[in-house]
């Protein structure tokens, strides 16, 4: 069968590199950790119990969720007007603006964090400037503000591109129709354009949320030890503590939380707004 021949290489890659590792992760998360022997094969829910019984770990999950939700909300807030302007732009500036949005994607999150480090660090731009002006400094490093700013700056281009491509598919004549029927531009936008962007908004929001839940470099560099999120915690358990079973459990908890929340959010969009 032609379809099978076309699809099987790709499906093989996914099953081998995603299916098998995840199955193994699930199995390992039920093993027991021992400081000397590292891993003892057994079947126990102890790793999960430990996570949910310890306020520290639950707190980390809550922080991660909070940061991801806040970053997603902010990305949509800033992304929607920018995406709308881009989508309705017709001049030659459009290419330049698109390039400016795409370019940061290539630079990578680690390297882009350098800019924020300069701004937020002790003795950095904000701190230094305030110190000279007022005498007292302001350290933003290792605060939720710093981490959320960092994540928003990394995810925003993705959100803008997703929203922009949705808005491009909305006929500008719809806005003209609304206007000719007596709706001033702002009102026309909320009554006509906004409902039609909902599917794209959901896609963009989910993408941003997953990226934020998963963020490693930003909380690691801007959050430091005082501001723990799931991804750095998992890596720490793996590399420093060598506690693979617990790291596996953390990975699955993170994955389950992400999947459940994204599934819930796509149910929130009414059917009729899904573009035909």
């Amino acid at each position: 069968m032609a379809a099978a021949a076309l699809l099987s290489p790709a499906l093989f890659v996914v099953l081998l590199m995603l299916g098998a590792p995840l199955a193994l992760l699930l199995r390992f998360s039920l093993d027991r950790y021992d400081p000397t022997e590292l891993m003892i094969e057994t079947l126990t829910g102890a790793n999960y119990l430990r996570f949910f019984a310890d306020p520290f770990y639950v707190g980390v999950l809550r922080t991660t969720l909070g940061v991801a939700v806040a970053a997603t909300a902010l990305c949509l807030l800033f992304g929607l007007p920018i995406a709308y302007r881009l989508a309705r732009m017709t001049s030659r500036w459009k290419t330049a603006c698109m390039l400016a949005i795409v370019l940061p994607l290539f630079v990578g999150s680690t390297v882009r964090m350098v800019g924020w480090l300069i701004l937020f660090a002790h003795g950095g731009m904000i701190d230094g400037a305030l110190r000279r002006l007022t005498g007292g400094g302001l350290e933003l490093m290792y605060t939720p503000f710093a981490v959320i700013s960092g994540i928003v700056s990394i995810n925003l281009p993705f959100v803008i591109l997703t929203l922009q491509s949705t808005i491009e598919t909305i006929d500008p004549r719809l806005e003209e129709a609304a206007e000719s029927l007596g709706a001033p531009p702002g009102r026309g936008f909320w009554r006509v354009v906004w409902p039609l962007t909902l599917p794209g908004t959901a896609t963009a929001g989910i993408l941003c949320f997953i990226l934020a839940m998963n963020a490693y470099a930003t909380p690691y560099l801007l959050g430091g030890p005082r501001f723990q999120m799931m991804a750095p915690l998992l890596y720490w358990e793996f590399s420093t503590n060598n506690n693979w079973p617990f790291a596996a459990a953390l990975g699955l908890i993170l994955m389950a939380t992400t999947l459940i929340l994204t599934a819930c959010s796509s149910l929130l969009i009414p059917r009729r707004y899904r573009v035909a």
Partner: peptide
Amino acid sequence: TAAMLLLAPLTVPGIAIGLGIYVF
């Protein structure tokens, strides 16, 4: 199902995939 499987890696946290692949 095939389409869902092929797009699934986008929705799984990379940190979990990384650990899984290493263990594998």
